[in-house]
């Protein structure tokens, strides 16, 4: 059985300039996200004594993440050097060089792009079943998972092979690597395949800080006069938005408690 852990190399705590939206990342602090670590842990479990390959599409600096995966128990590693802009295409090409995969485990979404689409695109490319956003995944003769739905519901799935699964960052982590394994992984040669996944199908504009957009509301009922009153908020008491910078925790608490009192959430 061939099990793949797809790990993305990313800075988990980037600096984001709230005014310009400029994102500053530190390559030294970069590594797999919690979800991807969890994916690796699942992949190692599913593979058991079998073959488990850690794969990343990223720059040479991303090899550190692969070495950590080797130290934690992955049997081999592969870095994909992609000249193009379609991660899933690059991953597909790279994984094909390893043979037909039985299970690919991904994180539920990456920290930077956060689309969660890569695993679904991999499933399409390999003609595999997909099970995304899992909070549990186990291989007990058969692969089963528990998936999170909206509204707090869950569904339990039987997952046929080949499959691509994506997991949420639950508590599961790869086992702590032994010192000899760490040293062996440091010395290991990491195979690299070079691919070109082609140009992006979209053109990206400027990156900006997120500002919530105005939300649409239904038109109020009543005649024109009442609608105007309702829309302008003339009938409801409303505090204008206010940002305060209290000097101490005590002042901050005063502000908060005053607010709660004024709005009737607390006895005066």
């Amino acid at each position: 059985m061939l099990v793949i852990a797809a790990l993305r190399w990313v800075d988990p705590r980037p600096g984001v300039d709230p005014l310009t939206g400029a994102v500053h990342t530190d390559p030294k602090a970069s590594g797999p996200s919690a979800a991807d670590e969890c994916a690796l842990a699942h992949a190692l479990r599913i593979a058991g004594p079998g073959r488990c390959v850690a794969v990343t599409a990223g720059p040479p600096a991303a090899e550190g993440l692969l070495r950590d995966a080797l130290a934690a128990g992955a049997t081999d590693a592969l870095r994909i050097d992609d000249a193009g802009a379609n991660t899933a295409v690059a991953l597909t090409a790279g994984i094909r060089t390893l043979g037909p995969p039985d299970v690919i485990v991904c994180g539920d979404h990456s920290l930077d792009h956060g689309t969660g689409a890569t695993p679904a695109l991999l499933a399409h490319a390999f003609g595999a079943a997909q099970a995304l956003g899992l909070v549990e995944l186990s291989m007990d003769g058969e692969l089963t998972g528990l998936r999170r739905l909206d509204g707090g519901r869950r569904e339990r799935l039987a997952i046929p092979l080949p499959a691509v699964c994506s997991v949420e960052p639950t508590g599961l982590r790869p086992p702590r690597a032994s010192l000899p394994a760490v040293l062996a992984a440091q010395a290991a040669a990491i195979p690299v395949v070079t691919v070109d996944s082609g140009p992006s199908m979209v053109q990206a504009g400027e990156q900006k800080p997120y500002r919530p957009r105005p939300t649409h509301l239904g038109a109020p009922a009543g005649d024109a006069h009442h609608r105007v009153l309702a829309l302008t908020g003339a009938l409801t008491e409303r505090t204008p938005p206010r940002v305060v910078r209290p000097a101490s925790a005590a002042e901050a608490a005063d502000e908060l408690l005053d607010f709660l009192r004024k709005h009737g959430f607390l006895e005066p």
Partner: peptide, 14 residues
């Protein structure tokens, strides 16, 4: 949105 909803990028498709 990118980076956990902290920033946005406008994407144009052909």
């Amino acid at each position: 949105t990118r980076w956990g909803g902290q920033v946005t990028v406008d994407l144009t498709a052909a």
